[in-house]
Nucleic acid binder design. Sequence first.
DNA 1: ATGGTCGGCAACCGA
Length: 271
Amino acid sequence: MLLWAHTPSKESRRMAWSLATFNVNGVRARLPLLLGWLKTAAPEVVCLQETKVTDEDFPAAALEELGYHVYFHGQKAFNGVAILSKNQAAQVRSGLEEGDGGQARVLAAKLDWGWVVNLYVPQGREVGHEAWEYKLHFLGQVAAMLPQRFDPAQPLVVAGDINVAPTDLDVYDPKRMAGKVSCHPDERAALERIEQWGLTDLFRLHHPEEKQFTFWDYRLPQSFKRNLGWRIDLVLATAPLAKICTGCLVDVGPRGQAKPSDHTPVVARFG
DNA sequence: ATGGTCGGCAACCGA
């Protein structure tokens, strides 16, 4: 047929694909919201955090019906991470080398294009608290794990609820938040160490000046409308993926139906 | 200056 002669090669018409990170704040409570969002946004890969459910109670079937392979690492009531992928994973690994201290906060999958590492970094409560020291330890473990297990010259995404606002541009009131949890210099230095290994913050790559948040202060009235938030949900990628990243957006679509304490998805496009 | 809201789970903890 004549048209075949004009069909681009398989390489040049390789499908664009997208990867999202979304702290769902309870995957069962937020399942209708999540399913509705997946149907319209249709990302190829999704990292979920705060699923708050044991593996035996994870609502896998509803997600599989949308065409996802579903991988999860959860616990009762708190934490919990999951990866959804349109393509089947070749390998899945949960936790860090030293373990997560009984907390389900790390899940990695080897997909057709490379590895994705899904992180739910501890929030830390407040600077100086035992939980804050653990947060720094956790970030240090991630920084140590990357060079042990991965190569910055190969395709890798590290995505999740990082619970650190990388710079003052990533918080609604830098003066008020100066030195506080999520903005403390030690936390930012720990994140910088992770990025300096060879990861690029894809939202910031495409939006160098934009004050766009992914989480808003649920304790302040109308915080979403007044944009009183932080950008703490990140998609980081090694150079081979940063080079083919065509955009990265915070999708506030689900926010209309969301509770004040909910995060909103971040979506990166590639290809 | 201080307080305020969620989910999970059955009293408050963590965010």
